[in-house]
Amino acid sequence: MDSALQSINYNFDVEIDRTNSSSNKWDKYRDQDILPMWVADCDFKSPPSVMKALHERIAHGVFGYTHASERLTNLFIARMADKYNWHVEPEWVVYLPGSVCGLNLAARALTESGQTIISPSPVYPPLISSAKFANKPLIKAPVVLKNGRWLPDHETAGKLLTNQSGLLLVCNPLNPGGTVYRREELEATLSFVEKYNLFVCSDEIHCDLILDKHLTHIPFASLNKSAAERCITLMSPSKTFNIAGLGVSVAIIPNNELRQRFIKVKRGIVPNVNVLAFTAAEAAYAYGEGWLQAQVRYLANHRDLLKEEINALPGTTLEHIEATYLAWIDCSELPVNNPHQFFEQSGVGLSPGIDFGNRAFVRLNFGCTRKTLEYALNRMKHAVFAL
Rank of each mutant, 00 (worst) to 15 (best):
T240Y: 02
F63C: 02
L313R: 06
L387Y: 07
I243D: 02
Y285F: 15
E229S: 12
P237R: 03
P97F: 05
E194W: 01
V384S: 00
L190F: 08
V200F: 02
T162F: 03
A300L: 00
V248R: 02
V248W: 00
A228W: 01
A294N: 07
I243Y: 00
K225M: 06
G353K: 04
C331S: 04
K146A: 15
T162K: 06
N337Y: 09
A277R: 02
K239S: 10
T324Q: 00
N337K: 14
E257G: 01
P97W: 05
H206N: 12
R71C: 04
L215Y: 00
W92Q: 14
G268Q: 12
L105D: 07
G64E: 13
V265F: 06
Q345E: 14
R230Q: 01
P120Q: 09
A281H: 07
F199C: 06
S130V: 07
T111K: 09
M37L: 12
E333H: 10
S346A: 15
V336S: 01
A81H: 07
Y124Q: 11
N163M: 03
D41Y: 15
E319T: 03
R30T: 09
G367N: 02
Q341T: 11
C201K: 04
A141Y: 01
H154C: 12
S165G: 03
L364G: 07
W291G: 06
Y325M: 11
L110P: 03
Q295N: 08
Y95M: 10
S69N: 10
N172Q: 08
I321P: 04
A327L: 03
Y375T: 14
R303K: 09
Q32F: 04
N224G: 10
E289N: 09
K159V: 08
E333Q: 13
H60L: 07
V348K: 02
S7Q: 08
V362F: 04
A131Y: 01
I321S: 11
P219D: 04
N311A: 00
G177A: 10
G64D: 12
Q115A: 05
P271R: 14
F262W: 04
P173C: 07
S22E: 15
A221S: 13
R30I: 13
G166P: 06
G158T: 00
